[in-house]
Amino acid sequence: MIWLTWRQFRTQAAVVFGALAVLALVLTVTGLHLRHLYDASGIATCTTRGDCDPVTSAFMSNYSLLRQLLGPTVLVLPAITGIFWGAPLVARELESGTYRLAWTQSVSRTRWLTGKLTVVGLASIAASGLLSLLVTWWSSPIDRVNAERFKADIFNERGITPIGYAAFAFALGLVAGLLIRRTLPAMATTLVGYIAAQVAVINWIRPNLRAPLHATGALQPLPGAGAFKPGAQLTKPGDWIISSHILDATGHATNTIRIGPDAGCVTTRTCLAGYREVLTYQPAGRYWPFQWYETSIYLSVALVLVGFTFWLIKR
């Protein structure tokens, strides 16, 4: 069974893993260079010298295009394997009628599905896992400087969560293919389902994996005319700020604070008195627990879906 699956799958596998190999080569070379730049930039010691801003922005200007392109690929690859490997896996057999050939050989349908799942499912997981490993390693100097890896749009582009995404997208494609029995609609369903799951997890599930912390503090006058950065005074670097509100003296939320140029408070520097900042956040220390939680959630859903396909295929 493994042989048949491999024979049908090897071209696609070669394309994806070939591309990964090329990418690995590029990332190893540029990643080593990036580390060299990091060591040479003096960021590690900038706080003692007090020139962090210019040093950081100089370092961050390196490979900025590659950096921006690289992150999303980690999010996209699980979708691609789910759509192009998971959805057609059974749907194409049902659509073209070849299931009538495959299921009437001397091999039970359960074993047939197990073979397919093992080869293609593990390949999907391996591809996303490898890519994430590469990208996480490559971006680690940048993430250290940025301290933003907990942020919603970076969290799912690093670490082990892409393994969960790949397993989930693959299983989703499998179930969609088996239920819809046609390849293209199953692929579309997989894409929609994957996006919906990501949106739901980011907005409603991940912020509440553990009860978020709250913090309240007075608004400090900013040195000079800089943009207001939420939580700058209340949180440590690497914390994930889920929401931030400004409350005025009466306790009402407000978006704007108007200070005229001739206001008396400017001279006394008391214009922000009475305003408070209220934060909801997850501390940086929860980064890895959250990676594990999210990965296990996706893996569990994938397992349930796979179990469902085994039940479906027996009928």
């Binding site: 069974m1 009628g97 070849t98 009538r100 009437t104």
Partner: peptide, 29 residues
Amino acid sequence: LGRVGFVAQETPTYSALTVADHLRLGAHL
């Protein structure tokens, strides 16, 4: 399953696989 041979309507085969592949498939399964 091994005791019953079946040729389905429109005789489905894997269009991307060669004739020899099909025989190997049969031998494996």
